[in-house]
Write a protein that binds this DNA or RNA. Structure first.
Length: 639
RNA sequence: GCCGAAAUAGCGCAAUAGGUAGAGCAACUGACUUGUAAUCAGUAGGUUGUGGGUUCGAUUCCUACUUUCGGCACCA
C-alpha cells in the first residue's frame, strides 16, 4: 500500500493507522499530531488507512487543528458538566469561528457564571486523565438505542437518513453523537477558558424549548489564550456604546424611551457631515432628494405589503378621525406614491429619488444595541425607477458608489452577501418562481461581470426581491448590514406604477432600493468602532485644540488663531482654563483631538503655530497660514 | 420576545455577615502662572434604578416592574 506524504511516498504492508504512520516518521511527529487529512477528508489519528492514499498530518500549527481542538474542548466541557451534575441532556456543541459552545439542559438546575470555576476545574482534571476519544460507527437504529432516553440526541438521529452511518465518540464514561474528528487525547486540552453563558433555543427555533449555552475558547499555547483575552478587552474598549458616551456623540434615557437615541452636539456634527457627504455624492450621480413624512396611512402599508409582513414589527397604528396612521418603518411606499403622482417617460430613466429619512421600527427589546440597532433611525435611502433593460447598469453604478464610499472611509473589512429567497419557504415572499429566478440571476450576473467577491445566502432576501448586502463585523462581534441593494418587481406591481416606453405604450418599471451608509446611526456606530474613536479630521467634532502656555501672555494670540481657523470652516477649541500645560495636553490627547496647538512666546513672536498630530510625538512649527492649508487639504481629501 | 446576569455621585468604581454609603477623576472655590500626558488645598455632590414586602431598622434579604449587558430568536 502506497501512502503519499507531502512529497514522499511510503510503502506499508497491510492496513495501518494514521497514528502508526506518524510514528514511522518520528515519535515527536506522532505526539504533535491532532488529526490527519486523508484524501482531503479529516480523520482521527485512529483512522485505519487501507488503500493507497494521500495523507497530510494536522499538527497544532495547522489552521484545521484549532477547530478540532475547540470541538474537542466542547466535548470535554460536556463531559465535565455531566460528571458534575449528571442529569443533563445535550444539544449541539460545535467549534465556531472563535472557540466553541455547547447547548445543554440540566434537570432542575440553571448554571450561572459562578459555576465556571467548577467546570473548568473538572475539565482540567479530565485533561490530566488523558482520556482517548474513541470513534464508533453504527447504524441509525443502534444509535437510537445508545442514545435512548436522550430526547435531544434522539431527535437529531431521527432526522438523519435511515441508511446514514452514524458516528459517536466515547471518552471515559461520556459518549457523544459526533462526526469528529477529535484530538487523540484530552491531554491536548490545557489552555482554555469558559467565556459566557446564555440561553439558546433548541434547534434555533423560538417556538421550542430554551437550552443553556456555554461559550468558551481553547488554544494549544497559553500565550495564545492570554492574547485572545487581551483582544476581547480591546474590543470592549472600542464598543461604540462606550465611545459614543465618552465622546458625547449620543445618549439614551429611560424617560424618552428605550432604543431611541438622542444625538448630542458632537454627534450631530458627525451626522451632518455624513449626510452632506453622501448627498453630494448622490447629486453628482443625478439623484434627486426629497422629503416625506415619518407617518403614513396604514392603507399605504397594506398596499405595499409591509403591513402583511411586518405588522408586528411596526409601532401600533394610531386611530385619528376615521383613519389609521402608522410610524413608517420604511420609505419605499412614500416614494412609490410620489412617483405615481406624475406621468413618467422612459427618457427620465433611471429616475433616482433619494431621502435621508427617519424610520421607526418596533424592534424586539433584546435586539436593541446602542445606535447599531434602534427603534428610531435615519436611512440613507433611495429608490431607482428603471426599465428592466437598465437593471444591470443601475446595479453596477450603485455597487461602484458603495466601493467609492468605502474607499473614502478606508473600509476594507467587509463581505458582499447575495441574499436569495429560501426555496423551501416560498410563501414568505411575494411574486412567482419565474420572477424570482430571473431577479436572482440578474444580480448574480452583474456581480460576476463586475468581478466582485460575494457569497450567497438563502433565506436572506427581502419579501419583494433578492438583494446584495454588505456585511461588516462590529466590535462586539455582531454581523451587521451596512449597505444594501435590492431588486424589486413587486412594489411597482402593487402600486400599479407605469411609464411610457419607446413605443408610446404604458409599461411597468422595476425599482431598485438601495442604501449606502445604510442607517446613519449604525454607520456612525461602525465608524466609531473602526476608528477606535479617532475620527478622521474631516469628521472630528473638534479638530484643533488650541492651548495657550500662559493665559496672560498668550491668550490674545490664541484667540486670533481660533478666529482664523473658524473663518476657514474648521472646528477649533481654545482651552482657557487656568490649568497646568501638561494637564491640558493630557486632556487633548485623551479626547483624541486630531491636532493640538501649544501657543507660547515662540509662536507669538514668530507668528507661527506648533502642532502635534494625534498619535504622533513630533512637534512641528509652521506659519498660521501653512497650518490652515494643511488642515483644509486634509479635510478636502477626507483624511 | 425568550434565558441568564447586572443596576451605588456627572464618569469609572469600592463598601455593608441587615445598623440610612466611601475614595479617585470630573464640577465648583482659592492659591500657583507654568513649553508637550494629571500642581496643591478646600467645597459641594447620593431617597444606593422604581414600587411593594420581610424587619425595630433594607443599599444589603424577598418580590414585581424599568433599563442595561451576554446570548438566542428577529432584522423590510
Amino acid at each position: 500500500m502506497k501512502i503519499k506524504l507531502m512529497e514522499n511516498i511510503k510503502e506499508f504492508e497491510g492496513t495501518i493507522s494514521l497514528s502508526d504512520i506518524a510514528l514511522s516518521i518520528s515519535n515527536s511527529l506522532k505526539k504533535r499530531c491532532v488529526a490527519g487529512m486523508v484524501d482531503g477528508h479529516l480523520k482521527d489519528m485512529d483512522y485505519i488507512v487501507d488503500k493507497d492514499s494521500d495523507v497530510r498530518f494536522i499538527t497544532n500549527t495547522d489552521k484545521e487543528a484549532i477547530e478540532i481542538l475547540n470541538h474537542s474542548t466542547a466535548h470535554l466541557m460536556a463531559e465535565s458538566i455531566k460528571e458534575l451534575w449528571g442529569n443533563v441532556v445535550f444539544g449541539v456543541g460545535p467549534a465556531i469561528e472563535e472557540g466553541f459552545y455547547y447547548d445543554f439542559k440540566i434537570d432542575g438546575k440553571m448554571l450561572t457564571e459562578d459555576d465556571f470555576k467548577a467546570i473548568e476545574d473538572k475539565m482540567n482534571e479530565i485533561s490530566r486523565r488523558a482520556e482517548h476519544p474513541l470513534r464508533k460507527e453504527m447504524t441509525k437504529s443502534e444509535a437510537l438505542s445508545i442514545f435512548n432516553g436522550d430526547r435531544l440526541k434522539t431527535e437529531i438521529i431521527n432526522d438523519l437518513p435511515d441508511d446514514e452511518i452514524i458516528s459517536a465518540y466515547t471518552q471515559g464514561n461520556y459518549i457523544d453523537l459526533c462526526r469528529g474528528p477529535h484530538i487523540p487525547s484530552t491531554s491536548f486540552i490545557k489552555h482554555f477558558k469558559l467565556l459566557s453563558i446564555a440561553g439558546a433555543y433548541w434547534r434555533g427555533d423560538s417556538k421550542r424549548e430554551m437550552l443553556q449555552r456555554i461559550y468558551g475558547i481553547s488554544f494549544f499555547e497559553e500565550k495564545d489564550l492570554k492574547d485572545y483575552l487581551v483582544l476581547l478587552e480591546e474590543r470592549k474598549a472600542r464598543d461604540h456604546r462606550k465611545l459614543g458616551k465618552q465622546m458625547g456623540i449620543f445618549m439614551f434615557d429611560d424617560l424618552v424611551g428605550r432604543g431611541l437615541p438622542m444625538w448630542l452636539p458632537n454627534g450631530f456634527i458627525v451626522r451632518r457631515l455624513l449626510s452632506d457627504y453622501i448627498m453630494d455624492k448622490e447629486i453628482a450621480l443625478g439623484y434627486q432628494h426629497v422629503l416625506t413624512p415619518s407617518l403614513g396611512n396604514v392603507e399605504l402599508y397594506k398596499t405595499s405589503g409591509h403591513w402583511a409582513h411586518y405588522k408586528d414589527d411596526m409601532f401600533p397604528k394610531m386611530d385619528v378621525d376615521d383613519e389609521s396612521y402608522v410610524l413608517r418603518p420604511m420609505n419605499c411606499p412614500h416614494h412609490m406614491v410620489m412617483y405615481k403622482s406624475q406621468l413618467h417617460s422612459y427618457k427620465e430613466f433611471p429616475l433616482k429619488i433619494a431621502e435621508i429619512a427617519a424610520d421607526f421600527r418596533y424592534e424586539a427589546s433584546g435586539a436593541l444595541t446602542g445606535i447599531e440597532r434602534t427603534r428610531a433611525f435615519y436611512q440613507n435611502d433611495s429608490h431607482i425607477f428603471a426599465m428592466e433593460s437598465q437593471i444591470g447598469d443601475v446595479f453596477k453604478e450603485v455597487v461602484e458608489l458603495i466601493l467609492d464610499v468605502y474607499n473614502d472611509f478606508g473600509l476594507k473589512d467587509y463581505r458582499m452577501r447575495l441574499s436569495l429567497r429560501d426555496p423551501n419557504d416560498t410563501k414568505k415572499y411575494f411574486g412567482n418562481d419565474e420572477l424570482w429566478e430571473r431577479s436572482e440571476n440578474e444580480l448574480r450576473q452583474v456581480l460576476n461581470d463586475l468581478n466582485i467577491d460575494y457569497y450567497e445566502a438563502l433565506g436572506e432576501a427581502a419579501f419583494y426581491g433578492p438583494k446584495l448586502d454588505v456585511q461588516v463585523r462590529s466590535a462586539i462581534g455582531h454581523d451587521v448590514t451596512l449597505s444594501t441593494i435590492q431588486l424589486d418587481y413587486q412594489l411597482p406591481e402593487r402600486f400599479e406604477l407605469t411609464y411610457i416606453d419607446e413605443k408610446g405604450e404604458k409599461a411597468r418599471p422595476v425599482v431598485i432600493h438601495r442604501a449606502i451608509l445604510g442607517s446613519l446611526d449604525r454607520f456612525v456606530a461602525f465608524l466609531l468602532e473602526e476608528t477606535k474613536g479617532v475620527l478622521p479630521l474631516w469628521l472630528a467634532p473638534t479638530q484643533v485644540k488650541v492651548i495657550p502656555v500662559n493665559l496672560g501672555l498668550h491668550k490674545e494670540y490664541s484667540d486670533s488663531i481660533y478666529q482664523l481657523l473658524k473663518k476657514n470652516n474648521l472646528r477649533p477649541q481654545v482651552d482657557y482654563r487656568d490649568e497646568k500645560l501638561g494637564y491640558k495636553i493630557r486632556e487633548a490627547q485623551t479626547q483624541k483631538i486630531p491636532y493640538q496647538l501649544v501657543i507660547g512666546d515662540n509662536e507669538v513672536q514668530n507668528n507661527t503655530v506648533t502642532y502635534r498630530k494625534y498619535g504622533e510625538k513630533d512637534q512641528v512649527t509652521v506659519t498660521k497660514e501653512e497650518f490652515v492649508e494643511l488642515l483644509k487639504k486634509q479635510v478636502e481629501e477626507r483624511k
